[in-house]
């Protein structure tokens, strides 16, 4: 077995460690290439590779003519339970707000009917909202609910209402379990415009459903998350 670390890898890890150990906060400029090369006794090419890699991984960013800065950490979307997003954001001290883009009753398409375990053409609410993190538009969420499960939903729902609150206090339903699927999509012109991003940018595409404690399907959703703002996180432990 070989016993060494490639100089480029070593330089990248040193740089990562330097940021962590010195607790460099977002938008702090890191020392110049020359200083870092001198400090670690490495050449410019090696250091540049290290910087490039960390820029690629989103840990650093470059400002032309000025230097290299520590990037802002992505917002953690901690996926712990069925109704955790607003609560989770609150705990992190992040303001999550919403704006309804569209709210209507549609006849269930094949896909929606299947997900909500209902029949084709059944009346369902389709609610599309744009969500903001600290005033930055970064999530487009489409929600489907069976009109029979949640009658008059459009009357109760507003920009400020929490879905968890509505389910619990108006319909007396407890969300208990669910499943979510996460993949990559690319923003359409319309989505990009809504989220103030570039068309074609990659983004998280999530679809999922939640069930009540009685095993009834409650909602089916599809969301798009800006990938430059979010990272998806799951923390589990045995105890």
């Amino acid at each position: 077995m070989e016993y060494h670390v490639a100089p480029r890898t070593e330089a990248m890890e040193k740089l990562e460690n330097f940021i962590a150990v010195n607790r460099l906060t977002a938008h702090t400029r890191i020392p110049s290439e020359r200083d870092l090369c001198e400090m670690w006794g490495i050449n410019r090419t090696t250091l540049r590779f290290a910087v490039d890699t960390l820029v690629e991984y989103g840990r650093l960013y470059r400002v032309r003519g000025s230097g290299v800065y520590v990037a802002e950490s992505k917002t953690v979307r901690n996926i712990v339970g069925v109704n955790s997003m607003s609560m989770e954001m609150q705990q992190q001290g992040i303001a999550l707000t919403s704006k309804i883009l569209s709210m209507r009753v549609i006849e269930a398409t094949k896909q929606v009917a299947k997900k909500l375990r209902t029949t084709l053409g059944k009346k369902v609410y389709e609610c599309i909202r744009l969500r903001y993190i600290n005033s930055i538009p970064c999530i487009i969420e489409t929600l489907y609910l069976d009109c029979e499960t949640c009658p008059d939903f459009d009357k109760y729902y507003s920009d400020r209402a929490s879905m968890g609150y509505i389910y619990k206090n108006i319909y007396h339903l407890n969300q208990e379990s669910g499943e979510e699927n996460i993949s990559v999509t690319y923003l359409s012109a319309e989505e990009a415009q809504l989220m103030d991003a570039k068309e074609g940018e990659p983004a998280f595409f999530t679809t999922g459903f939640t069930k009540t404690d009685k095993g009834q399907i409650l909602e089916f959703y599809q969301s798009i998350f800006r990938a430059d703002i979010f990272k998806m996180v799951s923390v589990i432990s045995k105890d």
Partner: peptide, 14 residues
């Protein structure tokens, strides 16, 4: 193994 933290990010990659 008692606990695990996972994160997903979308990147361009090297």
């Amino acid at each position: 193994m008692c606990s695990m933290r996972q994160s997903l990010e979308i990147i361009q990659g090297l």
